[in-house]
Amino acid sequence: MKHIFILAALLMYFSACNPGQRAGDDAAITLTDVQGNKVLLNKPAEKIVCLFEPMLDAIYMLQVQHKLVGIPAETYSDKEAFVPFSLIDERIRDKRLAIPGSNETANLESILALKPDLVIAKHMSDGTIQSLKDMGIAVYLASSEKYDQVLKELEDVGLLTGAVERAHELVAYTKQQFDTMQLAAAAVPEKDKKKAYFTWANGRIYATTGRNSMMNDCLEFAGVWNACTAPVDQPNINAETLISWNPDMIVMWNDPADLFYNKQELSGIKAVKNKAIYNLMPMFFYNPHTLKSTIAATRIKGWATGQTEEAALQEVKKMIVTYYGPVIGNQLITLL
């Protein structure tokens, strides 16, 4: 009962502080997100609660992080996220930015207390979305599942935050990178393309990526075949299936290669025999649900073509500085 009274009081307070602020259909900024949710703002957002890490990443790339008032809870609890974000934002380092939940677990009271004009999430109940809109708070839902979505969402958030020019620069750069990689991949004879098996983190070596996924796009842009032909996002397979695929190389997501080398039943696989097992780590730099999918693809291409480690890291560093700008970018590359 106490929580109901608190929420009611917050709703009344927020309404009193924002009379007539709810944007109508004639709003200056109007768009529809990839999940079909209509987003209206009278002007670019000044206070943002972001509950979805790929979009938090986009906000730093857009260089509008000063508008953040709330971030995903896992930013503090997940070391893979906390270390890089704390390096580039002292508010995260000191845990001063509010963490009003994460997507479905978002706390409405906590969000309202921050008085944002924009909330960005991946999932949120219809009731919560409507309550926020009733208070004049725009809600943007992102997915970041495929290449085209990642680009659209970056441009959308650029529009919603007043960083349109920066968003256009980032999208143009990303398209140029992928176009260049596509041309290079198309020039490789089919018979010479390597077959790659991708596996997700936390020891899940039989959890891979299907053809309907952003990581599949990364593999294709890198000029290699995805060993998995399943038309889904993240299928689970077994040892027999992996052996039958017999990939030339294995790309791991932040796990040790010994997870493969220590399994006797997998010793006959070409990638295992030839020690062609590679690792995308630290994960922050290769997140396929952000513009950094270009970096993941570049790294995979380097492994497939025998590029030296030094040359590969130089490419990665250059792309990080381009995506985040010299100030943040040069801080981040100290982690490589």
Rank of each mutant, 00 (worst) to 15 (best):
V119M: 03
C228A: 02
D258S: 12
P326K: 06
L41K: 00
N262V: 01
I328W: 07
M215N: 12
N216L: 03
E46C: 13
Q177R: 15
Q176V: 02
M61H: 08
L97Y: 01
F85D: 05
L51G: 08
M319G: 14
Q331Y: 12
M252Y: 09
M283I: 15
A227H: 00
M281G: 10
P288C: 15
L114G: 07
Y261W: 12
Y206G: 01
S293F: 11
G325E: 03
K263R: 14
I237M: 01
T229W: 00
E310F: 08
F52W: 02
R166D: 13
G268T: 14
I4S: 11
T209G: 00
N42R: 02
I6W: 08
N42A: 04
K43E: 15
V164Y: 09
A276Y: 09
Q130C: 03
E53D: 15
I250N: 03
K115W: 03
D156R: 01
Q35Y: 06
K2Y: 05
K115V: 04
K193Q: 07
Q264R: 09
L159H: 09
K195D: 03
P100K: 05
T199V: 12
I111E: 00
A81W: 04
K292M: 15
H66C: 06
R91N: 10
D192E: 07
F260P: 02
R22S: 05
D255N: 07
L10K: 01
L87G: 08
K318W: 02
L31I: 09
T174A: 13
N212P: 00
C50T: 11
T294N: 13
A311D: 14
V83S: 09
P44Y: 01
R22A: 10
D192Q: 10
A163E: 10
D233H: 09
D117P: 10
S77Q: 15
R93I: 03
H66E: 13
F85N: 02
K273H: 13
N279S: 12
R166F: 08
T305M: 15
T294R: 08
T75K: 04
A138W: 15
A304E: 01
P72G: 03
M252V: 14
M215P: 02
K152G: 04
K191C: 04
L170S: 14
M12K: 08
C50P: 02
I250F: 01
K273W: 14
S102E: 15
K275M: 07
D192S: 03
S110A: 14
P72Q: 08
Y206R: 04
A81C: 06
R96G: 12
K175F: 07
S244C: 02
I250D: 04
I320N: 09
L183I: 05
D134Q: 11
I59C: 07
I120C: 01
V188Q: 06
C218P: 02
I243Q: 10
F52K: 03
K122T: 03
P282Q: 05
D258I: 08
V321G: 07
G101L: 00
N226I: 01
F260H: 04
A167G: 08
M249W: 00
K270A: 15
E90T: 13
K317G: 01
